[in-house]
């Protein structure tokens, strides 16, 4: 059974996403909506990480605590982002969108696995966490769509 693999990967990716949301919130203190909502969404990831840590031992997985996320290792997102604060903002939101999408997909996969093995506890966890992952994607998409016209026209 490979559900443990999926749990381990989600634990890693949610930890990384939490760290990334906090990093973006800290990097744009004057972009107030980004700062505040990214902080709220980081809390969702922390909650998901704790949830996974609670259920993973059933599948033989003992993930590390939430304090040790691997670096996202995503590298540069957009050319020019190093020297241009506006492009950096778009790049950060774009990265959050992609990372959230990956996490959303993994929750979807875990949900499929939970159904096939009939683990009602795990099904409940995926029902709670998967929609939030999609909502984080939508948030990043919405912020990108709202902020990009002014930045691209400027």
């Amino acid at each position: 059974m490979r559900i443990g693999v999926a749990l381990r990967e989600l634990h890693r990716s949610e930890s990384a996403l939490s760290a990334e949301f906090l990093r973006v919130a800290g990097r744009h203190p004057q972009e107030h909506e980004v700062r505040h909502v990214a902080g709220d969404l980081a809390a969702w990831s922390r909650d998901h990480v704790l949830t996974i840590a609670g259920i993973a031992p059933r599948y033989g997985v003992e993930p590390d605590g939430p304090g040790s996320p691997e670096p996202s290792g995503e590298g540069r997102e957009l050319p020019g982002e190093e020297s241009d604060a506006d492009l950096l903002l778009l790049a950060d939101l774009r990265r959050l969108y992609r990372m959230s999408a990956g996490v959303a997909l993994d929750w979807d996969l875990l949900g499929q696995g939970a159904r096939v093995v009939g683990d009602s506890g795990l099904i409940e966890v995926t029902r709670r966490c998967a929609p939030r992952s999609v909502r984080r994607m939508r948030w990043a998409r919405g912020m990108l769509r709202a902020l990009s016209p002014q930045i691209l026209a400027g």
Binding site: E33, V37, D40, L41, R138, W139, G142, M143, R145, A146
Partner: peptide, 10 residues
């Protein structure tokens, strides 16, 4: 509509 928590437009 929007997401009531994140504000993301649908």
């Amino acid at each position: 509509g929007r997401d009531l928590v994140t504000g993301a437009p649908l």
